[in-house]
Design a protein around this nucleic acid. Structure first.
Length: 880
DNA sequence: CACTCCCGCCAATTA
DNA sequence: TAATTGGCGGGAGTG
């Protein structure tokens, strides 16, 4: 840098300045020799060789800046052609100046020339908009800084914004990878979707017709500032708070940039005023909306706007409102984006494996969750309310329509999740916490002495390691497959081949039993979730909080311990775990949804639930996928994932539905899983349900049914020994989502270990015991075709079928679902159930979410307690 | 005077 | 501990 400056400063060493040199060359070559001597002479401006030269000189003198421009022009020539004619002369002139010009030079740097926008243009000029996919361009910050003659700090400003749009990605210290605009449309699309969720609501619902964003913005501010803000905050804030600040990362320019872009994409007018944007973006710690803070925000927005302007995405305009003329920016970039399945995968193009850091980031989020709590609470409540309302609506309505709606919503949710995921990734945190943070951990059953599962007699689950095809239940199914719209999400996932993103369920070889601890473990998870699914979580949290942590620890230990027979899988599982950890991130998203409202769509609640899952999936998928691909490609996992992705299950994320089962809250620590023995037909499978899981997970088809979705794990019966599976709550949610509604998930009830031990199959339903029969069906889905053998709801069957792919076993076996009763139909314990539903729904997510957060969060505890009690009741009853 | 926004201190992170 | 990142806000340039 110094050198560069010197060159500028001291014309004497023009050589150093590359730009100058170039210009000189130009100038020189034409006139070559003659000029040089003259230069010296130049001083006498009047004597220029040519009249033009004089003019030039004059010009230069008049505006020292001009010189600089010339230099810059070289870089930007295309941009500023008009002046080119002058340039050569000027160049010459410059040379001339050398001797004399110190003064000028000092002057020359006009502010404009130093502007970030100009700098950014220079920066961009160095790289192709659409670099060949094959070649990766790495950017060295130091190098660029020196070349452009600026301090590194400025380069960070540029790079951070570019990174927010995925034009570049950080590879390592001082190293960035240039991606160009290949992914820009995808990124923008994602941001748009995310923006719609976050901000769109306001706009659509409130001001559907209005175009003026700024108006909205203002109004929004006034009216609904919180809601608006939240969504965004979700991504970043939580972290910040949690991590104690999690660093600036979250608040960073990067996030601001994304939010800023979202505002443009969401606004109909495509015009956003700075002050509005600043207000909206301040959201975070809104409390202290100091004027100073506002000013600072505006400053940053200028920084961002300058870069975006350089990218040709926005331009400055002025909006004249009542108050007067206000500075604003208009979006001049693409408005519509081709749909690409890959959006999620944006990273993929780069092909760089996500930096570990990203993973870490996820972890951070999780860890940070605690800090977020307060935020989550707020959001959670609102979201919960919304969800309920939506739910109710939905319930009344016929399934199909709802489903569709839901699907749409789901798709949105997914998108958000994807976005969140990306953000998370971007945030790249450290991998540090990954272990802990994992939303769920897989434990080889055998290994875990500690584990909740332990209680289960291993004997029950044969530890045979067969290479049974992996079987995954379609967790994500609901969200992904079902709708056409959804495919995109799934695709995205697919994009990353390895991913398995969504699957809620994992099939493990029979040999080993794995427990997945979903939300239990970390707060982290919960936190993010909470936002989304606050509802569900709460209850769960209370319960889970304690247990989860324990579980995690345990799980981690177990994992470490190879006790489990299934070697391969474990790793995979772990990976997944990691991925899942990512989920938590996604959690953040959920809040938004809840808040956001999509209430319109249907089922807020359902959506939220679905969202969680989806988010998880997504998150998992992207990060996980990456991980998977990178790390391992563990066949099993991959396959499973793929399968899932492939599955077309129509599942949708059912809108709502949740239902409730509540987990038991009773024993926080105790196993949260329920072991269900195979029903008559199903002897082959045992199911474990996590007690904790949030009812929300279950969401069923939303409509009607009361059916509960429970996180289930299918475990082969001991005899069969085919699969021991445990589903983490998180998973469960996925399951539930799946169903078109048809599927009723069994509500998981927590049952004591002892129950597990019992050879007899146990069903746990939150409310009622499930009968092997379809009984629930009626209420649940009329639609569903009855499966002959299976009691399973259609959904299950689907899942099974999907699963089947993986393992024949699965196919063959009839799966029995437990249906918990639905309150509506013949609820065993209606009272418990219903309340449960609602509450559970809200709370349930908690399974995912971290318990801690919940605890803290709300006064929910009271609710939780109630839920717990209910649970207890249920558990007792259910067996019956 | 209002807008812009450069500059660089210095804290948070990372190596 | 040193280097890298990047938040932040003073205050200067511009119109």
């Amino acid at each position: 840098e110094n050198i560069y400056d010197r060159s500028r400063m001291a014309p004497k060493t023009p050589i150093k300045n590359e730009p100058i040199d170039l210009s000189k060359q130009k100038g020189c070559t034409p006139e070559g020799n003659p000029i040089t001597p003259v230069k010296i002479i130049d001083r006498p401006q009047p004597d220029p060789w040519t009249p033009t030269t004089n003019l030039k000189i004059l010009v230069s003198a008049a505006s020292p800046d001009m010189r600089d421009r010339e230099k810059k022009k070289e870089l930007f020539r295309p941009i500023e052609n008009s002046e080119q004619s002058d340039t050569p002369d000027l160049l010459q002139y410059d040379i001339v100046d050398d001797s004399t010009v110190d003064e000028f030079e000092k002057q020359r740097p006009s502010r404009k020339q130093k502007s970030l926008g100009l700098l950014c243009q220079k920066f961009l000029a160095r790289y192709p908009n659409y670099p060949l996919s094959t070649e990766k361009t790495t950017i060295s910050l130091d190098e660029v800084a020196s070349i452009l003659g600026v301090e590194r700090r400025r380069i960070y400003d540029i790079v951070n914004v570019l990174e927010s749009l995925q034009l570049v990605s950080r590879v390592a210290k001082n190293q960035y990878c240039w991606h160009g605009r290949h992914n820009l449309s995808q990124t923008l699309k994602m941001l748009q979707e995310a923006g719609e969720l976050q901000y769109g609501e306001l706009m659509t619902s409130q001001h559907k017709e209005q175009d003026l964003e700024y108006k909205f913005g203002e109004r929004k501010k006034e009216t609904i500032p919180d809601s608006q803000d939240r969504p965004l905050p979700d991504f970043s804030e939580p972290d910040c708070t949690s991590a104690s600040a999690n660093s600036r990362k979250d608040k960073s320019l990067r996030i601001m940039s994304q939010k800023f872009v979202m505002l443009f994409l969401v606004s109909k007018t495509k015009i956003v005023t700075l002050d509005i944007a600043a207000k909206i973006l301040i959201e975070e710690t809104q409390d202290t909306v100091d004027h100073s803070k506002f000013k600072t925000k505006v400053r940053r927005l200028y920084d961002i706007a300058n870069v975006l302007t350089s990218l040709g995405l926005i331009k400055k305009v002025h909006v004249t409102e009542e108050r007067g003329r206000k500075p604003a920016f208009k979006w001049i970039g693409p408005v519509e984006f081709p749909e690409k399945t890959d959006k999620l995968r944006e990273h993929s193009p780069t092909s760089d494996p996500l930096p570990e850091t990203q993973r870490g980031a996820c972890a951070q989020y999780q860890t940070s969750a605690t800090g977020k709590q307060r935020f989550t609470r707020r959001s959670s409540f609102s979201s919960a309310q919304i969800c309920e309302a939506t739910r109710r609506k939905v319930s009344s309505e016929p399934n199909s329509p709802h489903q569709e709606r839901q699907d749409e919503n789901c798709s949105k949710m997914i998108n958000l999740a994807a976005v969140c995921r990306q953000k998370i990734e971007e945030d790249t945190g450290s991998a540090k916490n990954s272990n802990i943070s994992l939303p769920f951990s897989l434990l080889p059953v055998p290994g875990d002495s500690d584990f909740c599962v332990n209680p289960l007699p291993q004997a029950v689950f044969p530890v045979v390691q067969a290479d049974v095809p992996n079987f995954s239940l379609p967790n994500g199914i609901s969200s992904q497959a079902s709708h056409p719209s959804m495919p995109a999400a799934s695709k995205a996932e697919n994009g990353k081949p390895t991913l398995v993103p969504n699957q809620p369920f994992l099939c493990f070889p029979s040999s080993s039993l794995f427990m997945l601890c979903g939300g239990l473990q970390e707060n982290n998870v919960s936190e993010p979730l909470p936002a989304a699914g606050d509802l569900a979580n709460r209850s769960a949290e209370a319960q889970a909080a304690a247990p989860p942590t324990a579980c995690q620890k345990r799980s981690s230990h177990k994992c470490s311990s190879p006790s489990a027979p299934a070697d391969d899988e474990e790793p995979a599982a772990k990976k997944q775990m990691l991925e899942q950890s990512d989920l938590p991130l996604s959690l953040v998203v959920p809040k938004k949804p809840s808040e956001s409202p999509k209430a319109e769509s249907s089922p807020g609640s359902g959506c939220s639930a679905a969202v969680h899952l989806e988010t998880n999936h997504l998150d998992l998928a992207s990060p996980a996928a990456r991980e998977v691909a990178n790390e391992s490609t563990k066949p099993s996992d991959c396959q499973e994932q793929e399968k899932q992705s492939q599955n077309k299950d129509p599942d949708e994320t059912p809108p709502g539905n949740e239902h409730i089962s509540k987990e038991n809250a009773n024993q926080p620590f105790q196993p949260q899983y329920l072991y269900v023995q195979p029903t008559a037909g199903l002897s082959s499978f045992n199911f474990l349900f996590s007690a904790n899981q949030a009812p929300g997970a279950i969401s069923l088809a939303a409509n009607k049914l009361p059916s509960l979705s429970v996180p289930c794990v299918m475990v082969p019966s001991a005899a069969l020994a085919s699969f021991p599976l445990v589903c983490s709550p998180s998973f469960t949610s996925a399951l539930s989502s799946v169903p078109d509604g048809s599927f009723s998930a069994a509500a998981s009830t927590s049952f004591s270990v002892s129950s597990l031990a019992s050879p007899t199959p146990v069903f746990i339903s939150t409310t009622a015991v499930v009968t092997p029969k379809v009984s629930p069906a009626p209420s649940v889905d009329p639609q569903q075709p009855a499966h002959p053998a299976l009691h399973l709801s259609p959904v299950l069957t689907r899942s099974c079928s999907a699963v089947k792919m993986d393992s024949p076993v699965c196919m063959g076996h009839p799966v029995t679902l437990l249906k918990l009763q639905q309150p509506s139909s013949a609820p065993l314990t209606p009272k418990s159930i219903r309340p449960a539903h609602h509450e559970a729904f809200f709370k349930t997510p908690g399974s995912l979410g971290d318990p801690v957060a919940w605890k803290k969060n709300e006064g929910n505890q009271t609710r939780n307690a109630s839920s717990v009690q209910r649970r207890l009741e249920i558990s007792s009853t259910s067996p019956d």
